[in-house]
């Protein structure tokens, strides 16, 4: 296993709030790893430190063995809600990174990506003229246009309806099968995490550290049938039990 990203003893403190503490795990190259955990457990903090946008107060994150201290071109980021710039049309949004970096865009690759996610013909549309799912597909194209080696996705589909969400999950898997980009995926949905991932990492409640680390050995491409299997059902319950176990609420018994 080649380690692409290594989180080493990561800790982050905001004034009097400790978001992360002693969080360590590896992400193998060309795999998808999901991170789940109770609300406010520092998932987003963790992802932003992996992107180099936020610094850690202790520990470090390494990319190919080299410490990340600032945003890097090898790392792409997909945000909660598409985060397209509303005053630019779709294509100008996708070309935004190239504009900032003064680079010539690889139009053949971008055209291919647009076609892949089904956005061909929508290049001139403004973000408000696109559905939530289409906007998020545009954001994925924007992130992939620079051919990053790692894609960090921060609850990208949380605001979408259930059907669109499943569709987007299949799309992410298809893209992964084609590009084998290492993906770190943060989500609230255990089902989404299992569907997409080679590994699901469960964080403890704040300050977040690794509570459990489950491999997901299911064949790809995954389907509704895969997800209906006993193995998935058991894993889903195990993760749920992990997360509910951290909750301050008393678990309900059948008698109630």
């Amino acid at each position: 296993m080649v380690v692409k990203l290594a989180v080493r003893n990561a800790g982050k403190r905001y004034d009097d709030l400790e978001a992360l503490k002693g969080c360590s795990f590896d992400v193998a190259d060309k795999t998808i790893v999901s991170i789940v955990g109770p609300s406010g457990c520092g998932k987003t903090t963790l992802l932003w430190s992996m992107s180099g946008l936020h610094s850690l107060t202790s520990g470090q994150v390494d990319l190919d063995g080299e410490r990340i201290t600032a945003p890097r071109p090898e790392i792409g980021l997909v945000f909660q809600e598409a985060n397209l710039l509303p005053w630019r049309n779709l294509m100008d949004n996708i070309l935004f990174p190239f504009e900032v970096k003064h680079q010539t865009p690889d139009m053949a690759w971008i055209t291919h990506l647009m076609d892949r996610v089904g956005l061909t013909g929508f290049e001139k549309r403004m973000p408000r003229e696109l559905s939530g799912g289409m906007q998020q597909r545009g954001a994925i194209v924007r992130a992939l246009s620079l051919r990053p080696q790692v894609l960090l996705m921060d609850e990208p589909f949380g605001a979408l309806d259930a059907f669109t969400r499943e569709e987007m999950n299949r799309l992410v898997e298809e893209i992964w099968l084609e590009t084998k980009t290492t993906i770190v995926f943060i989500t609230h949905s255990i089902e989404e995490a299992i569907f997409l991932s080679d590994r699901v990492i469960v964080l403890t409640k704040r300050p977040g550290r690794v509570h459990a680390d489950y491999p997901v050995n299911l064949p790809r491409p995954r389907s509704l049938e895969t997800m209906a299997g006993r193995e998935v059902f058991d894993l889903m319950n195990k993760i749920k039990a992990d997360i509910y176990g951290m909750s301050s609420m008393r678990p309900r018994s059948a008698a109630e």
Partner: peptide
């Protein structure tokens, strides 16, 4: 902040 982060992530 998300849009500022987007720009920063590309090294703006």
């Amino acid at each position: 902040s998300a849009k500022l982060a987007l720009a920063r992530s590309y090294g703006a």
